[in-house]
Design a protein around this nucleic acid. Structure first.
Length: 423
RNA sequence: GGAGACGUCGCAUAGUCCGGUCUAGUGCGCCACCCUGCUAAGGUGGUGACCCCGUAAGGGGUCCGAGGGUUCAAAUCCCUCCGUCUCCGCCA
């Protein structure tokens, strides 16, 4: 939810943001009109209600005939109040519905669509497998050789885009996630294991039930949603609360399974575990003051890069274009690791600054000097996911099909230095 | 799954049976000021959220777990739901 006051005072800012995202700017005028009619309806209701209350007090005092006369008047008024209230309610809903369609105001993101990202920097150098004298295997071939990844049985049991991680595969995932949690804790994050089923209002509050609602699993019997990231549960954690940010941002590191329907991605990344329905993720989540949000965003990005350094992966950082931002994000940076067998970069982390968009919907506020409250900013960023296994296997593979374990992960694998194929 | 109790403005609690004087009382906490050479104690006042009108001062409205209903009028009566607790059953 964007700030209606911003829209009233600076409608051109909102229009510009909509245009940058490739969305319809005309909705701004629809909101302004709905706002006007809601205010007028609310005024009618409140005036009538005030009259009803004061008459009610007179009724309580009055006796006999005087009371009868008053009762007749109040009965009439009651109908009027009811009808005004209904009108005001409807006008309010109309406004909310329009306002909630407006996505967060873009801040600093490059204009354009998915392909218009700006590369911020490259870190590390992709290996030259030709010079090393062998053809790199892809992550699934490597994973099968290591008896680490089993997509055939995943499909047998659960369908396409499901998999088993076995042996060193399972251990490697745990190693990654544990390394991520340890790093987060060292940086002051509170580690959290979150619910993965959430109520509709929480899912809607984080902005995931808009355009891409068909990406999300829904349990109809219980009207609960399976989260696609622990961001959802962590954003909901302080919903409806007034939080204290006087000591700096509140930082949580969520550990959870993540579920995605991957509707509309048929035929894309079908091999292996690049794009799957279920995976694990450690996610950083910060509640910060709005004026600290940019700095916090940069910190989240830096922590992501620390993890990538532990995994010893070559990657680039991109500044996502406005048209490719999620509805909640004002700005987003992705870190993409080099994938040798596909000669392309693969997203491993994503950090978004959602400014006050989610907090406004979820009612997360802070108290400021003077006793006033205002919405906080929320930010999130990836520390590790199952997908990282793809990049680690491919980038650290050796000619014999074994895989060198990055030094930073060895403590989490009992000191193991090389993953050896099972013959 | 069954039975029962409970949910009030930071915390604790009154009010609910019997609807209007609740414009929600009180204690604690907190804030400001006063007093006291410091501290403690004491005194006075204040003390929530959200929305609308207004430059402001100020005025008005909504909120007693949530949502409906009855009524001229609901914290109070009725219904549904949610949550917490206790007991029983069942399952890990």
């Amino acid at each position: 939810m964007i700030d209606i006051a911003l829209l009233r005072d600076n409608p051109q800012v909102v229009r510009a943001s909509q245009i940058a995202r490739g969305e319809d700017p005309a909705i701004v005028d629809a909101v302004l009109a709905a706002d006007t009619s809601r205010r007028s309806a609310l005024g009618d209701f409140e005036a009538a209600r005030a009259q009803q209350k004061s008459l009610g007090r007179e009724v309580a005092q009055a006796k006999g005939e005087e009371r009868e006369v008053l009762l007749a008047r109040t009965k009439q008024l009651a109908d009027q109040v009811k009808s005004f209230q209904a009108k005001a309610g409807a006008a309010g809903e109309e406004l909310d519905s329009l306002l909630s369609q407006i996505q967060n105001i873009v801040e600093g993101a490059p204009p354009g669509g998915e392909d218009d990202f700006v590369v911020v920097r490259h870190v590390g150098t992709p290996r030259d497998f030709a010079a090393e004298g062998f053809e790199p295997r892809d992550h699934l071939a490597l994973g099968e050789g290591l008896r680490a990844i089993d997509t055939a049985r995943g499909a047998k049991v659960s369908g396409s885009r499901f998999y088993y991680l076995t042996g060193v595969g399972a251990r490697l995932e745990l190693a990654l996630l544990n390394a991520a949690v340890d790093q987060a804790v060292a940086a002051g994050f509170v580690p959290v294991i979150t619910p993965t089923l959430v109520k509709p209002e929480i899912m809607a509050g984080t902005g995931f039930l808009g355009r891409h609602a068909d990406e999300i699993y829904h349990l109809g019997t219980d009207d609960l949603y399976l989260v696609g990231t622990s961001e959802v549960a962590l954003a909901g954690y302080h919903s409806g609360e007034i939080v204290d940010l006087s000591e700096g941002p509140l930082r949580y590191a969520g550990w959870s399974a993540c579920y995605r329907r991957e509707a509309g991605s048929h035929g894309k990344d079908v091999r292996g575990i690049i794009r799957v329905h279920q995976f694990h993720k450690v996610e950083m989540f910060s509640y910060s003051r709005l004026e600290d949000a940019d700095a916090e965003h940069q910190r989240l990005l830096a922590w992501e890069e620390d993890m990538l350094a532990k995994a010893e992966l070559p990657y680039r950082v991109i500044d996502t274009a406005a048209g490719d931002l999620g509805s909640s994000a004002a700005r987003k940076f992705d870190c993409e690791a080099w994938l040798p067998t596909q000669q392309r970069y693969l997203e491993l982390t994503s950090t978004s600054n959602c400014t006050t968009y989610q907090a406004r919907r979820l009612g997360v506020r802070e108290r400021v000097a003077g006793g006033q409250t205002r919405p906080v900013a929320t930010l999130n960023g990836t520390l590790a996911t199952t997908r990282w296994i793809v990049a680690i296997l491919e980038n650290h593979q050796q000619a014999d099909g074994s895989v060198r374990v990055p030094v930073g992960l060895r403590p989490y694998l009992g000191g193991l230095e090389v993953l050896e194929p099972v013959s």
